[in-house]
Design a protein around this nucleic acid. Structure first.
Lengths: 230, 230
DNA sequence: CAATAGCGTGACATTTACGTGACAGGCTAG
DNA sequence: CTAGCCTGTCACGTAAATGTCACGCTATTG
């Protein structure tokens, strides 16, 4: 439907074919590469909209490739999702440092993969340019990473900002702590669910000066909701 | 506490019992099937929230069952976790293509199983507009976890909300206290049947401000019914 | 009419869920 | 290196929710 092009760099053929099958059916255009040199061939032909990059590759590692991609002017803005084997948790940190936008632990399901891809593409697309969301006098400038109410600037930490960003793009709906961890913190991380409470508290404190803290609502036994209605 | 229902299809009884024990203690409602036909019996009775599906089954394979489940309208959206023996890597690919959402390699620990189940269930809830059910001026917004009547918000506890949600998705039909305990509280819990009465009372009180409490009707000797007709 | 089973309802103890302050570790800038 | 911010986790107190019971009312049965 969208016709986005995705490059997958993965040396294990079964996985590559599975991904190719699943994404092809989802309407994406696929380019496949089994190693680094093939990857560069593909990149020379067309700059994809997203890159799926295996962590373990013959020759140079996926990490190295990620670094090089992030240095090149042409591929700098192409989001990267790393594919890692289970238990390489430390690698995750290095991978994200190298410029990866997300990562998935193998084995993963097509459904999960599609969800991640959708999420990453949504984050990467020019939505950031246009983005000033305004609800009930509260303004969120995504590009400028700024929150204002009645001209007054509201200060908050990065996590609170992401939380508010998610809330303002998904208002009037309840999200459980688990869902918020998925959507705001990123998937498969090992953060306690109660941590969400603390950041909700911090977000409320940050919104308090303008009185918008009342929009962050607790739904007992269900989760939290951002709403202009009482 | 969530009361999600899980169907396990597995011919090896020891594994089935281990899983059943572990998940039962974790608060899930279990349905067990030893083969394909038993699986269909269970599915006819109730559509579960998740299916644990053994790869090797007598008769048709788990793969075949997965395919059929993904074709049926009712069970299309139910996530499936495949249970495979070690080293069936290719099967895994095929299984995921067939629509499985995840897979676990035997032997697995109850802890790992629970983690996977939790993860899959968390992702299963779709992003799209969860429907708003409206009966006779009473509106139930499932996604927003809200009940309104004529723009006025009606407050109630979590259990009352689940009860009303069940009633509004199954109106015009009488349910016994036992059935309500099964469907709203979840199976295998040890709650007195008379407790249902109390929550019916609380639900009626919550609906009273708009006069919709009359829709919760007592059928003497049989149970309760939610109906717009008097 | 009396006896009885079924149901409504207020009260209460316990459990659960949530808000909140405090704190240690990590990261960054100076 | 140090100071300061951000983050995740914990512990504790409080408010809400839950399950159970007892009592009384009501419909049903004989």
């Amino acid at each position: 439907m969208s016709g986005k092009t995705i490059l997958i760099v993965e040396d294990e053929k079964p996985i590559r074919e599975m991904v190719s099958f699943a994404l092809g059916r989802a309407g994406y255009s696929l380019m496949e590469a089994g190693d680094i040199s093939e990857a560069f061939e593909c990149l020379a032909r067309q700059v994809p909209d997203l890159i799926l990059l295996d962590w373990m590759l013959p020759g140079a590692s996926g990490l190295e490739l990620a670094r090089r991609l992030k240095k090149d002017e042409l591929t700098r803005d192409v989001p990267i999702i790393m594919l890692t084997a289970r238990g390489e948790e430390e690698d995750k940190v290095t991978g994200l440092e190298a410029g990866a936008d997300d990562y998935i632990t193998k084995p993963f399901s097509p459904r999960e993969l599609q969800a991640r891809i959708k999420a990453v593409l949504r984050r990467a697309t020019p939505e950031g340019e246009a983005g000033v969301i305004r609800i009930d006098g509260l303004e969120l400038d995504i590009g400028g990473h700024r929150v204002t109410a009645h001209g007054q600037s509201l200060e908050m930490g990065p996590t609170e900002f992401r939380l508010l960003e998610f809330f303002m793009t998904h208002p009037e709906r309840v999200y459980s702590r688990g869902q918020l961890l998925d959507r705001v913190w990123g998937r498969n991380n090992f953060v306690e669910e109660r941590t969400v409470d603390v950041h909700i508290l911090r977000l409320r404190k940050a919104l308090a000066p303008s009185g918008h803290d009342a929009m962050v609502q607790t739904v007992r036994g269900a989760g939290y909701r951002f709403s202009s209605r009482i």
